[in-house]
Design a protein around this nucleic acid. Structure first.
Lengths: 102, 102
DNA sequence: CTAATATATGAACACATGTTCATATATTAG
DNA sequence: CTAATATATGAACATGTGTTCATATATTAG
């Protein structure tokens, strides 16, 4: 892999930083498979609507999730396959046995 | 993708959080392709040895990088393919054109 | 052993950031 | 229009964390 230029690095770091908070990560995981409304995310995860909305704003700005309004509700879903791919890769990384003499 | 259990979520978040800092991300990128010594990372990126070492400790604890000592020097490299895979996926995500009506 | 080099670590400070609460905006029903 | 519901936003606080500086440990040379 070639070394990304500086502007890409800060953008990269922003994406990872957003996924690096457990609350925000849970929110992303909650809308990975199927679009889900803000209130449903909040009640499912036991969080306030305000908190979820704050996080969704950041996640949407980074195009980690995308929003679709249907009436009063706004449904959020993972932005694309790269997001789920990254999460899948990291889960594999965790699942891998820890070898010392690799 | 199935919803990861709680313990995996905090481990996942830890990994992302570590990649979410530009300095640490540069360090990871610096040792992605070939093992590189601490001092070389520091001089290449214009950072102090102390700072690089601090970050490498965290990265190594999370198995994002691995260490190999050769004499006085310790060479660091990316831990496995998942790490480079995640970075590649995220770079694709950034490179993707931003469509509004996706 | 001592000296020199490379890396690691502990403490303290400055700054960033997640959360809460109050309030504002949007959408639909009547 | 008003009322009700769903989501969004602004400010303030508390906590976490990246960085620096000083110091400690490891390894090799002499």
């Amino acid at each position: 892999m070639q070394a990304p230029i500086e502007s890409s690095i800060s953008e990269l770091a922003d994406l990872f930083r957003l996924l690096g908070d457990t609350t925000r990560l849970r929110i992303v995981l909650a809308c990975l498979d199927t679009p889900i409304a803000v209130n449903d995310i909040a009640s499912t995860l036991g969080l306030s609507n305000s908190l979820v909305s704050h996080h969704l704003r950041l996640l949407r700005a980074a195009r980690i999730v995308k929003a679709d309004r249907h009436g009063k509700q706004v449904f959020y879903a993972a932005a694309d396959q790269h997001i789920s791919g990254v999460l899948a890769d990291m889960l594999e990384h965790i699942a891998e046995p820890h070898t010392d003499a690799d």
